[in-house]
Every structure is written in C-alpha cells, then in structure tokens.
Amino acid sequence: MYILQAIASISHQEVFQKELFWSNLHALEAETNIQHPDYKAFIPANALRRLSPILRMGIACAKSCQEAISEPFDSISVGTGLGCLIDTEKFLVTINTTSGDILSPTAFIQSTHNTISGQISLDLKNHAYNMTHTQNTLSFEVALLDGMLCVDEGKKHVLVGAADETVPFLKRLQPDIVSDEYPLTSGATFMVIGSENKSDAVGIVACELSFKQRDLTTWVDAFLAKHQMTAAQIGLVLHYDALELNDFQNKLSYAPLVGYNMSAPAFAAHLAVDWLKDSANQGAVLLINNMDSNKQALTLFQKA
C-alpha cells in the first residue's frame, strides 16, 4: 500500500488545506470561479505576477504538501493533460501579431509542460527525480503510477500531482472536440506518498490503466479480486461519466463537482482520500476514470 502523507487541491470548491470538506461540496454552476488561496503565502510577489493559474496552483499545492511533511521530496512526478495553455496561447498570439525581431521569451519559457514540475524544484531547491507526464485524461494516473514505482524503488516522500487550466478558446471546440457536458474548469491536486504507515492514514492500494474500450464490470471484478476485495467492501464508487455497475450501492459522479479538465481525476482522488478520513464512512473507495471510453483507469483507496 502507498500511504498518503499529505494532500492539497485548488479547485472550484473550497478545499485548499481543508479536511472533511464533503458537506461543503456543491454542483458547479456554468460560470464558476476557482477558489484561489492567497498565493503570497507560497510564492514571492515579484514571481507571482508572471505566473499563470496552472503554475500558481501547482506550486501552492506542492509547497503546501512540503510544509506538511518533515523531509524534502525525494521524487516529483507531475501530470498535465494540456499543460500551460494560457502561456501557450499567449505566445501563439505574440508570434502572429508582433512585427520585428524582439519577442518576450517569458510566455514561451512558461508554455512548456514541465514548467510546473520545474518551478517546484526551483522554488524548493529540490534536486530529486523530476518528471512530467501528459496522457490526456489519464495524465494523473500515469504520473501516479510513476510515483508508485518510485516508492517501490525505496523513495520515501514522493510528490505526485496533476494540474490543468482552461482558456476561453476551448469553448470554441465544444461540443465535438471538447466536452460541453460540464463547466470547463481549472484545478490542481498534489499529494505525497510513501511506504511508511502511520495511524489514521489513508492509502492507495493499486492503480490500473486500460487503453482500449473494455467492459467495466468484468474489469472491475478482476481488479478487485486481484486485491482480495469484493464489491461489498467498497463503500463508495467515484466515477466521471455515467456507468452501469449494479453490484455497488454507493456510486457518485464527481463530474458535477469538478467540471471538465483533464486533471479532474486527481481532484476525485482527493475526494476519495477525504471521504476515507471521515470516521463515519466505512469501506474502501474505487475511483473510476471513465472521462474517455477509449482509455480508462481504476484506482483503489482504503484506510491503511
């Protein structure tokens, strides 16, 4: 089991540095705002000005996690579906509208997917393994699996996270290319995993990916059996799109709570962890990432 040492999210819900927040969650309206914390507590004011939301959110979540544990991270693994869209678009506009040879490099530098993980290492003066994964709606899970591999290799404080930001341009691609079922959102969730157990801890048992369409019922049965579990032991199933899984009593779509961004499953992982921290809840949590039927993921959480 991979034990959670810390977790932090910034999203359209009020969850940053909060615990037992389930009772405060609400379905998002069409135009909702991100619940930004006061970033000055995490990022120097002069640096803050040039940072887009995805960078602010990622750095603040990572630093919040760092403050919660005693040792520096010994690995960093970050996922992002579309990366730093605001700076990417800004640079695309710049190169198409600026005449002459002088271009400001800031947007280009910050458009790279690994700006998030790079800035985290830079701000924390962290020299450890530093990876950025991007696999559309599975970006969180591929980063998580790398983090779990780091724990298997003996790393003790592995930072795993995912972040995405939206831009108005994406609306133009609805509904054919970008889903319009839920509000377009931004968000970041970071967590620290390791192998050392402690009291009242929550852990990740396993995560499995599929890159082809497959029957979820059979897959879920096999996945639970592999980890010596039955449907009856699952207290909550979190899923994105509608699904038919008759064996489970308590199922909830997290899509209305987080909206559409490719890192939404990372926020759902935080929902799972927070649900397990409530002593009133019994059983494990199965997180089903079915945002895209062509590639899906199962992640199992339980009290350690």
Binding site: T80, G83, T112, H113, N114, S117, N130, M131, T132, H133, T134, Q135, V142, L209, F211, K212, K295
Partner: peptide
C-alpha cells in the same frame, strides 16, 4: 500497441 501508453514532456 495498447497495453500501456505514456508521454513524457520534460522539454
């Protein structure tokens, strides 16, 4: 190939 697909983006 479909057993696992991942993309690394570290410049």
């Amino acid at each position: 190939v479909s057993d696992y697909i991942n993309t690394i983006s570290t410049a």
